[in-house]
Amino acid sequence: MIALGTGGIKPCVSSFGADQFDDTDPAERAKKGSFFNWFYFCINIGAFISGTIIVISKPGGSPLTRVCQVVIAAFHKWHIDVPHDTSLLYEVDGQTSAIEGSRKLEHTDELRFLDRAATISSADLKSESFTDPWKLCTVTQVEELKILIRMFPIWATTIIFSAVYAQNSSMFIEQGMVLDKRIGSFNIPPASLSTFDVISVMVWVPLYDRILVPIARKFTGREKGFSELQRMGIGLVLSIFAMVSAALVELKRLEIAMSEGLIHEKTAVPMSILWQIPQYFLVGAAEVFTCIGQVEFFYDQAPDAMRSLCSAFALVTVSLGSYISSIILTVVSYFTTQGGDPGWIPDNLNEGHLDRFFWLIAGISFVNLIVYIGCSIRYKYKKASRLNFM
């Protein structure tokens, strides 16, 4: 029922909001693009709030509160040396942690300065402040923060993917507007080609699950075929190919516009809009690898009591990606229109170089991929204790 309700509300709200803008007015068109940015922003802020602020009422307290407790306790004990024997760090007895619904986490040697929060000082022994988490935290609580810090670079490097995905509803549509939209006697609305993104997801999900995973399992020995990080990396590669495909289509379009003498005419060129299908299809394939891999990664690697928080952070990348795309577009427009030049993305795309914008996004994505690979190689998976029910 929730899925049906969400499916009915979201498309109606976005369409209703967009219908308030006049497509014939350039200023209104610009504001409509801003509306979609804020619409996505609000959706993901709502998801973020549901996974952070609302969970304060959950048993075990807010994850953000526990993070603050570790930081404050470690800061208060900045002058205390962390014992070399990690068994001397504070942890509750038994198999379960002090955090309700969370398994104990094994101690790691990274970010040792945070271990001060779990170091039992002479003042703790005298005041018996073992029950005050603002003064003394458990090893599990400290490890929760360490996991969040380790996950941050992976999270940050997925934002650029969302910037690529944002082209589905922005520059891809602008490109489609100046392509031949006629298929026989029927005109294809440029925005409708995003359907091929959805079709691609529908094709790639069963293909990945039933064919790619069994094949990969034989080579990697992993039950899932690929690790979450490998899966996300493949998606980032596919997103680069999507931008390259869009750039090549635009190069060909501009070549036809020049040969037909349409450079200074604001009109569509005689090149079928169906040439955009590969770029939409590649974005859809990238979604299956990166987005699903991201959801799985943040669920599996998040501390047991912080899964809602981490899932909320994963959704925030969509909003940030949309805004980074807008910022890049604004910067490109500013610098490429200096000296009276029409710029890369003028009102008449036949006079511009939209291909260079796509190449720029591809280049940024490639650099991001290199950073992601480096972060993935250095990433250490969490180690949680196993509960014994026997």
Rank of each mutant, 00 (worst) to 15 (best):
C68R: 07
C68D: 08
Q69G: 08
Q69P: 04
V70C: 07
I72C: 05
A73P: 06
A73S: 11
F75N: 07
F75K: 11
H76E: 10
K77R: 12
D81E: 15
D81Q: 14
V82A: 01
V82F: 00
P83V: 02
T86A: 12
T86D: 11
L88F: 04
L89D: 05
Y90F: 15
E91C: 06
E91I: 06
E91D: 15
V92L: 11
D93G: 10
G94V: 04
Q95T: 11
T96S: 05
T96P: 00
S97M: 03
A98C: 13
A98T: 07
A98S: 13
S102Y: 00
S102H: 01
K104M: 06
L105E: 03
L105H: 01
E106H: 11
H107N: 13
D109M: 13
L111W: 10
L111K: 11
R112L: 14
F113A: 13
F113L: 15
L114W: 12
L114A: 10
D115K: 10
D115P: 11
A117V: 09
A118F: 12
A118R: 09
A118H: 13
T119V: 13
T119S: 12
T119L: 12
T119M: 11
T119E: 14
A123D: 12
D124R: 03
D124C: 08
L125H: 02
L125N: 02
L125R: 14
K126R: 13
K126S: 12
S127D: 12
F130W: 10
T131S: 08
T131I: 00
W134R: 07
W134Q: 00
W134M: 01
K135E: 05
K135C: 00
K135S: 04
L136D: 00
C137P: 07
C137T: 05
T138N: 03
T138C: 04
V139C: 02
T140Y: 02
Q141E: 15
Q141R: 12
V142G: 02
E143C: 09
E143G: 08
E143F: 07
L145T: 05
I147M: 07
I147N: 01
I149G: 03
I149N: 04
I149P: 01
R150K: 15
M151C: 14
I154D: 01
W155F: 10
A156D: 00
T157V: 02
T157L: 07
T158K: 00
I159L: 14
F161Q: 06
F161M: 06
S162N: 13
S162W: 10
S162C: 11
S162E: 12
A163C: 10
V164W: 01
A166E: 06
A166N: 09
N168L: 13
N168A: 07
N168I: 10
N168E: 09
